[in-house]
Design a protein around this nucleic acid. Structure first.
Length: 462
RNA sequence: GGCGCGGUGGCAGAGUGGUUAUGCAGCGGACUGCAACUCCGUGUACGCCGGUUCGAUUCCGACCCGCGCCUCCA
C-alpha cells in the first residue's frame, strides 16, 4: 500500500485511487514569461519521480501539467520586448521543454494551455455566477465571493476573518470583500482579450486550473500537486471554484513540494540569488542537479549551494564508478534491495532512503567485482540500473557521464587525453615513474583524473 | 500578529519506543611503483526542560531557535 502525505489532512494516508489501478494527477505548471528556475526544477522532478514510481508499481497514470500562457506578467514582459505575447510564450515553452529533457523529466500525458480553455473557463464562471458564488463588477471584472464558500481555508488552514483582517486595502474597490479574487479580468484598451458575457477580457489565474483539471481529469480526481507557495491562495481558490461549481470533492490528495533556498537564503530576484535551470546546467551536469534534488525528501526544504551540488556530484560519481566497465545483465530477479526500495518509496516517496539502497547495491557490485563474481556483478548492475531508473538516474553510459562534465572541461579533447595516457603508460612500463607522474599531474591540472585498474587506465573529468 | 513546517554526528540527509541509515569529509589497514578507484575497520548524534514508560532521539506538554505562507511567485 502506498502512503501519501495529504496537505488537506496534514497526515499520511493510504493511497486509494478513485478507480483501481488508475491515477489521475494534475500539477500546476509554469507561467511562461521567463526561463524556468530551480524551484520549477524541484517541482518538475518531484512529480516526475512520483509518476515514474506509480507507473513502476503498475498504475496507469494520467499526468496533466498545465501551462499558463496568458497573464499579467506575460503581457508586461511581451510589451517590454515589443513582441506579441504568443511569440514570448512559444519561445519559453520551447525552452521549458529543453530544460525538462535535460533534467530527464518525462513529459506529462497532457499539457493543456489556458488559452485553449477559454470557453470552458467562461462556462465555469457562468456556473459560479448562476449558483451565487461569483458576481460581475462594474469595472468589467468578475469576482469570486469567498464568503459564500463555507469551506474556504480548509487547505491552507486559514480563517476568512483573519484573511480579511490582515488584507491590504485593495485599490480595486469593485470587490465586495478584500479576500475576493478575480475570475475574469476586463480588458484595458488595446489589451489582448476574448469576448465573454461580461465584456472582453481574459481569465484570472486560479480559474484556468479549475477549468483545465476538470476538463482533462473530471470533476474529482486523485492527486493535485504543485509548489509550496501555491497552497495559498492558488490551490485554496481552485477548491473554492471547483467544489462550488460541481458540488463534489475536487481532489482527494493534495501534494506540495518543499521550497528551494540558495545559500540558506530565500531564493528571490531582489536578493539576486535567482538561478535558472539553464544557468545551473552550465556549471553542473543535469544528472547531478537531479541527484541533488532527489537526495532529499520532496517535501523538505533544500538548500542550493556549491558545496551541496559538488557533494551530490561525488556521490553520483561513486554510483557510476560501480557501473563503469561492468556488464549489465539483461534482467535480474527481484532482490531484497528491490523490496527495501519499494518499502521506502511506498512511504510517501522517500527518495532519500531509496538512494541509500542504490548505494547498497553499488557496494554489492564493487564487492562482486573485487571477488571476481562476474555473473553476480552483472545481476547487481541490472538491479542498480532498474532502481536508479525509477528515480530517473543512472541511465547514461558511464563513459559518457565521466567524460562530459560541463564547466569542468579543461580544454583538452578526449583524443589528447588518451594520447597522454598512452605516453604515461609507456613511461610506467619503462618504470620511468617520474615522467608518468608528471603526465598525471598535467592532466590533473586540466581537471582530468585517472583511474588505473587491471584492465587499463580510464579517466574522468572531475 | 494569524496559520503551518522543522530542529539528528564536521557537513548533507533518512529513520526508529530498547539493535549500523546512507553519502561527503576524517582516521587506521589492504590494494597500487606512488596515487586515484575499490575493499575492510573506526570515532563524534538526535535543540532545551518536564511528563508517560521497565526504557524515548522516536509519544505528550511547555520553552528556545530556524524556516515558509498570509502580496505576483514552483
Amino acid at each position: 500500500m502506498i502512503r501519501i502525505y495529504n496537505t488537506l489532512s496534514q497526515d499520511k494516508e493510504d493511497f486509494k485511487p478513485l478507480e483501481p489501478g488508475k491515477v489521475r494527477m494534475y500539477v500546476c505548471g509554469m507561467t511562461v514569461y521567463d526561463y524556468c528556475h530551480l524551484g520549477h526544477a524541484r517541482v518538475l522532478i518531484a512529480f516526475d519521480v512520483i509518476t515514474r514510481y506509480l507507473r513502476h508499481r503498475g498504475f496507469d497514470v494520467t499526468y496533466v501539467r498545465n501551462i499558463t500562457d496568458i497573464d499579467d506578467k506575460i503581457l508586461i514582459r511581451a510589451n517590454e520586448n515589443g513582441e506579441p505575447f504568443t511569440a514570448l510564450t512559444e519561445r519559453m515553452i520551447a525552452a521549458m521543454h529543453e530544460d525538462e529533457e535535460k533534467l530527464g523529466v518525462v513529459r506529462p500525458s497532457h499539457e493543456p494551455r489556458a488559452t485553449e480553455f477559454i470557453q470552458e473557463i467562461i462556462d465555469l464562471i457562468q456556473i459560479l455566477i448562476d449558483k451565487g458564488y461569483a458576481y460581475p463588477a462594474d469595472n468589467g471584472d468578475v469576482y469570486y465571493a469567498v464568503s459564500e464558500f463555507k469551506d474556504y481555508g480548509k487547505l491552507s488552514k486559514k480563517k476568512l476573518e483573519d484573511l480579511v483582517a490582515g488584507a491590504r486595502v485593495d485599490i480595486a474597490e469593485a470587490k465586495r470583500s478584500p479576500a475576493d479574487f478575480a475570475l475574469w479580468k476586463g480588458a484595458k484598451p488595446g489589451e489582448v482579450s476574448w469576448p465573454s458575457p461580461w465584456g472582453d477580457g481574459r481569465p484570472g489565474w486560479h480559474i484556468e486550473c479549475s477549468a483545465m483539471s476538470g476538463g482533462s481529469l473530471g470533476h474529482t480526481f486523485d492527486i493535485h500537486g504543485g509548489g509550496p507557495d501555491l497552497m495559498f491562495p492558488h490551490h485554496e481558490n481552485e477548491i473554492a471554484q471547483s467544489e462550488a461549481a460541481h458540488g463534489c470533492t475536487y481532489v482527494n490528495y493534495w501534494m506540495h513540494a518543499g521550497a528551494v533556498r540558495v545559500n540558506k537564503e530565500k531564493m528571490s530576484k531582489s536578493l539576486g540569488n535567482f538561478f535558472t535551470i539553464r544557468e545551473i546546467l552550465e556549471e553542473y551536469p543535469a544528472e547531478v542537479v537531479r541527484y541533488f534534488l532527489v537526495s532529499s525528501h520532496y517535501r523538505s526544504q533544500v538548500d542550493y549551494s556549491k558545496d551541496n551540488l559538488e557533494e551530490a556530484g561525488r556521490a553520483l560519481t561513486k554510483l557510476y564508478h560501480a557501473l563503469r566497465g561492468v556488464e549489465v545483465a539483461d534482467d535480474a530477479p527481484e532482490t531484497e534491495h528491490d523490496r527495501h526500495f519499494h518499502k521506502l518509496m511506498d512511504d510517501d516517496f522517500n527518495t532519500a532512503g531509496a538512494i541509500m539502497v542504490l548505494h547498497a547495491v553499488a557496494s554489492d557490485i564493487n564487492l562482486h567485482r573485487r571477488e571476481g563474481r562476474v555473473v553476480e556483478a552483472a545481476q547487481s548492475a541490472a538491479v542498480l540500473k532498474r532502481l536508479g531508473g525509477i528515480l530517473g538516474l543512472l541511465q547514461q553510459d558511464p563513459e559518457d557521464y565521466f567524460k562530459a562534465a560541463p564547466g569542468k572541461d579543461g580544454g583538452l579533447t578526449a583524443e589528447a587525453i588518451e594520447d597522454l595516457i598512452n605516453q604515461r603508460n609507456q613511461a610506467r612500463k619503462d618504470r620511468n615513474f617520474a615522467e608518468a607522474d608528471r603526465i598525471r599531474d598535467t592532466l590533473a591540472a586540466q581537471g582530468v583524473i585517472l583511474d588505473d585498474s587491471r584492465e587499463g587506465t580510464s579517466w574522468r573529468r572531475g
